[in-house]
């Protein structure tokens, strides 16, 4: 087993950039005055000549990234998910994704676990916004190891990618030595026949813990980790629908437009079964410590376990 790591995926992101930049000279990193928070500061320290702070001007940062990419660079442009995908949506859509330029957008502090900063900074719409853009790949790693693999994998894509980064330190789930990040492939973390929990990002580990608890109660839950939300692994979803008959999606995101809708689309078209979407129910968050908020919003193992029992009528 690989070592269990408790780390925020933003930190893993910064480390991965540094490591990959050793051999890939085209990597450049842009930030919008949040380098210390997005952890691009790790890269900045190691490669100051390839790091550009664009100041608090996200729209321009994305445009600059587009221009760099048009000249052969591989820019990673980072900000909070809220501002990267919200403020700069149209720059991403028109200057990056439409011409399919090789820009990687990193949205840190995604989700409710941003915590004390409150609703204005807790982005719960980024996956929906990015999924809706043609040419865009959307990845939401669940832990340290997955983030390391994801950053390496996106270098092999000649086109735009959105990477979701979390603020909160979380315990790794992919501790098996043979773990390998495969773009576009879901990962079955636990087999089961009664129901499937399909989770993404920070709540994946919660889904695994929930499944262990449910097993003790006689409920055999499959757990699938979807790190690549677009393009989504249709096969693993259809297989789960066929074999377990019921699906619960689980994400730290609005239930509108995120993983839940992506899974439901696949299921509705290919193998209609009940899909219960578990996430943030079309509302804003508020200030508070991340862990408390995750509990209040049901984004924990007990939270998803409750939903599973309700779905199974137990």
């Amino acid at each position: 087993m690989a070592e269990k790591v408790v780390k925020a995926t933003r930190e893993s992101f910064g480390e991965a950039l540094c490591e990959l930049a050793k051999t890939n000279k085209d990597i450049v990193v842009l930030d919008a005055d949040l380098a210390a928070a997005t952890k691009t500061s790790i890269f900045q320290k190691a490669y100051p000549e390839r790091f550009f702070d664009c100041g608090i001007a996200e729209g321009n940062m994305i445009g600059v990234a587009a221009g760099l990419a048009a000249c052969g660079k591989i820019p990673f442009a980072a900000s909070f998910a809220m501002f990267a995908t919200g403020r700069a949506f149209e720059q991403i859509r028109n200057s990056v994704a439409y011409p399919k330029l090789n820009v990687k957008i990193a949205g840190s502090h995604a989700g409710i676990s941003t915590g004390e900063d409150g609703a204005t900074h807790q982005c719960l719409e980024d996956i929906a916004i990015m999924r809706a853009i043609p040419n865009m790949t959307v990845i939401n790693p669940a832990d340290h190891y997955e983030m390391l693999g994801a950053v390496e994998a996106v270098l092999k894509i000649d086109g735009p990618v959105y990477l979701r980064l979390g603020r909160l330190a979380i315990e790794s789930v992919n501790n098996n030595d043979d773990y390998k990040f495969e773009l576009g492939k879901g990962v079955t973390l636990r087999d089961g026949k009664d129901v499937t929990i399909i989770a993404t990002g920070l709540v994946v580990r919660e889904a695994v813990i929930a499944a262990e608890q449910l097993a003790e109660e006689g409920i055999d839950a499959r757990v699938i980790n979807i790190h690549t939300i677009k393009p989504i692994d249709e096969d693993i979803i259809v297989k789960a629908a066929k074999e377990t008959g019921r699906i619960i999606t689980f994400e730290e995101h609005n239930v509108i437009g995120g993983l839940g809708d992506a899974v439901a689309s696949v299921v509705a078209e290919k193998c209609p079964v009940t899909v219960k979407k578990c996430g943030v129910y079309d509302r804003y968050g508020y200030s508070g410590p991340a862990k408390e908020l995750l509990e209040i919003f049901g984004l924990t193992a007990p939270g998803v376990a409750r939903e599973v029992r309700a779905l199974l009528g137990k």
Binding site: G63, V64, A66, G67, L68, A69, A70, Q91, S95
Partner: peptide, 11 residues
């Protein structure tokens, strides 16, 4: 466009 032009100049 001017932002992209800046990126090209920076490159």
């Amino acid at each position: 466009g001017i932002s992209a032009a800046c990126g090209m100049a920076l490159a």
